[in-house]
Design a protein around this nucleic acid. Sequence first.
RNA 1: GGCUGGAUGGCAGAGUGGUCAUGCAGCGGACUGCAACUCCGUUAACGCCGGUUCGAUUCCGACUCCAGCCUCCA
Length: 462
Amino acid sequence: MLNIYNSLTQTKEEFKPINEGKIGIYVCGITTYDYLHLGHARMMVAFDVITRYLRASGFEVNYVRNITDIDDKILNRASENGELFSDLTDRFIDAMHEDEAALAVLSPDVEPRATGHITEIVDMIKVLIEKDMAYRADNGDVYFSVMNFPGYGKLSKMKMDELLDGARVEVGELKKDPRDFVLWKSSADDGVGWDSPWGYGRPGWHIECSAMSSCCLGDNFDIHGGGSDLLFPHHENEVAQSEAATGKRFANVWMHNGPLRVDNEKMSKSLNNFFTVREILEVYDAEVVRHLLIASHYRSPINYSEQSLQQSTSVLERFYNCLKGLDIVSAKSLTNSRFEKAFCAAMDDDFNTPEAFSVLFEMVKEINKSKETDTGLANQLGALLVRLANLLGILQSTPEEFLRSNIAVEVDEQEIDQLIAARKQARADKDWARADEIRDQLAAMKVVVEDGADGSGWRVER
RNA sequence: GGCUGGAUGGCAGAGUGGUCAUGCAGCGGACUGCAACUCCGUUAACGCCGGUUCGAUUCCGACUCCAGCCUCCA
């Protein structure tokens, strides 16, 4: 039984798909005017784990994650660069795909772009105007009329009158109510835009997601996800637009991943603690970063720091040390194991990855013990460990690949092999001084020697 | 000010009305020429004040503090 926390009801609920065995999930993707940052990566990895697990649980998943490729920030940036906005977005969409692939994030099934759905957006706005849920302002902007949608605030739990208190006083008389938000923005005739019944313009941010989700998954679908910072106003506005337009319930379940902090502060450019995925991956292994992002529950805040990265490194070293020497390729993965049951029980409980990890660590201990006594069992457990870890998107390298490479360290394998051979001779001669000297030499190269019963192995120090 | 969430051992981080989270670090052993890896054992926590209860870190209420959102934001 799968339980998911629903932001709408603020409780964990037993998950029941609309159509038996099938799940439609829509996640708010990114606005593509710059490289992916760590907060984006957190969202992508969180929903990657979720969709991986849903598929492993037997569901047929249709995972839709949109791309906002028209927006003021995009237009401003393109204008600064002196390039076409579409060239800018194409460039950063490619970069996004590279970055998420590096983090082992599987591609969504559909990646709709706002600019590819202008027709649906315009159609939805037409319906909203017909239903008196939206109106055209004098300058050609179209606004959603919040006071005409009685359910406004049900997702974010914001009260209508309190919103009024908090709303900024708008300059001009375009909006009838300060809480109203834009559906269609008029553009200058020579600017970027599309023709519409209200004049030349471009879509507002919120309406894009309403139109694209309906288009890809239908008016009512199973799960809508995104970062918790999108809950208000973005998701609240989506609910209002979609339900006002269709008269049907929008998403059944709302899932929100928690924020990412850097050294316990909100990540922002002004605090100078802003990290892009690609600059982190120049220094840290992708699996280490990925582990950091799933070591906490998806709804909890994550603190990104040098120390947390170190901890994730230690964790992965423990896993890969355990896997070292196992023959998991030809071993059959255990089925119906108590470990797998415990792992699934954790994941079935609102995707509790920290608890799932604790099961994986129990397996590590069991495997390490079995290595001496029952290699067949160790191999089988190892195969299961890799299979379960795959649902989290980690342990997908071989132990050698992981332990012997480090993006931050250059190693010369030939030289290492020579030194290890020389040390082996010294040890055979019981020339411990010489053996230790060679080990120090290797250590200076960031190489750690590990002596085993069947010879000496090595790994790179992290 | 409003809304939402949180406060767990040295650090990270789950969870539970009474009995073990887990990882890192620490401590004591084993293994090792010495290490590393690994194993065995072990220390250590539930913000504060009340209430419910035989018993609360876990439920209820007050308080304090923290974070996110209320403005573009994953």
